[in-house]
Design a protein around this nucleic acid. Structure first.
Lengths: 158, 158
DNA sequence: ATTATTATTGAGAATCTATTGCAATAATAA
DNA sequence: TTATTATTGCAATAGATTCTCAATAATAAT
C-alpha cells in the first residue's frame, strides 16, 4: 500500500471525505521524496494550474500527520517544513553551508550516545536529531579547496 | 573580566551607551549559565518588577552576539534560544519533552561520525549539532514510569 | 436517481508571535 | 547647561497559521 492509498484509507476510516483538492495535494507531496513546506507546495500547484487554496493545504497537513505519512521538521528559517515518514527510516542531515542543500544519511552510532546518556542520567531518550554542517564536494571544488580531513581547523556552528 | 564587564567594554568601545535597561538585561542573563529565550527573559524581569520592554531585549541580543557573549541556538520548538559562550565549550543538548528543560552534555563520539561521513562523501565537515529528546527523571517519576533502557519502544522524534 | 446531510472549499478576516518604526526620553559630549 | 543622538516603550508591522462563513460537493438515505 503506497502513501496515497494509505491516505485514502485513513480518510475513509475517519469518516472524512475524499476530495479532488486532497488528491491533488497528496499527489504533489508524494511525487518526490523530498521535504516540503506549505508555501512551496502552494506555489508549485499554482504554477501547474491546479491551484489549491492555502487553507486547504494547511487543513490537509494534520491529516497527513495523523495518518503517519509525514512529520514536522523544524528548520532555521522561521516556518514549518515536513518530511515523509513511510519508507523513510530515521536519518540525519548534512547541510552544505555553501549551496544550502541538505543531504540525508544514516548511521547507528548515535544510538550508542543515546544509551550512554540515558544510563548516566536515568533519563528516557526517545529520539535524537543530528545535523552536520560543512561544504559539499561541489562547493569545495568551486572554492578551489581540497577536503580537509584534519579536525584541527574545525569550527563549531553550534 | 566577566561577562558583564566584557559587555560594558563592548558598548563603550562601539560608541554606544550604557543604560539601566541594558544592565538589568545582562545581569539577568548572566546570573545563571542557562539557555534563555526572549519571552522567558521578558516574563522573568516582569515578575521581578524590573520590567523591560521586549523591544529592548530584542535590541540587546545582537549586541551580546557581536560581543561574543552569547550565540543563537535553534531548538525544535519554533523560536530562537540563546546560550552563553564565554567559558562554555561545545556541547550537545538533551531536551525534556515533559517539562521542556534543556540539559547540556558533552561527548566526543560525534567526531567519529563526522570523520566517517567526511571520508565517505568527500565533504568537509566543519561542525555539528546533536540534540537528544526524551523525558528527564523528574518527568518519568511524575508519569509513574520507569526509565526504559530498551530501545525497542524507541520513537523517533525526527 | 433524488434528496438530505454535513464535510469541505476558498477568500479573506483574525490571530499569534517575532520584530521594527517612531516620537519621547535620557546618556554622553561639548 | 545645552546639544547631540542613542535608546526606550508603545504601537504598528510582517509573516505564518488558523478561523469564519457562505457556497459547494461528497456521501448516505430514501
Amino acid at each position: 500500500m503506497n502513501e496515497i492509498e494509505v491516505f485514502r484509507k485513513y480518510v475513509k476510516e475517519s469518516g472524512l471525505r475524499n476530495t479532488p483538492e486532497r488528491e491533488v495535494i497528496i499527489e504533489e507531496i508524494f511525487l518526490t521524496h523530498d521535504h516540503f513546506d506549505v508555501d512551496t507546495l502552494y506555489l508549485c500547484l499554482k504554477n501547474k494550474k491546479c491551484s489549491i487554496s492555502k487553507a486547504s493545504i494547511y487543513r490537509t497537513i494534520p491529516l497527513l500527520i495523523e495518518s503517519g505519512l509525514i512529520k514536522e521538521v523544524f528548520f532555521e528559517d522561521g516556518h514549518m517544513h515536513y518530511e515523509h515518514v513511510l519508507g523513510h527510516e530515521h536519518h540525519c542531515h548534512f547541510r552544505c553551508l555553501g549551496c544550502g542543500r541538505i543531504i540525508e544519511f544514516k548511521q547507528d552510532e548515535v544510538m550508542d550516545i543515546e544509551k550512554k546518556f540515558s544510563r548516566s542520567h536515568g533519563f528516557e531518550v526517545t529520539g535524537h536529531k543530528l545535523e552536520l554542517f560543512g561544504y559539499c564536494r561541489e562547493c569545495l571544488k568551486k572554492q578551489g579547496k581540497d577536503r580537509k580531513i584534519s579536525t584541527t581547523d574545525r569550527v563549531d556552528i553550534d
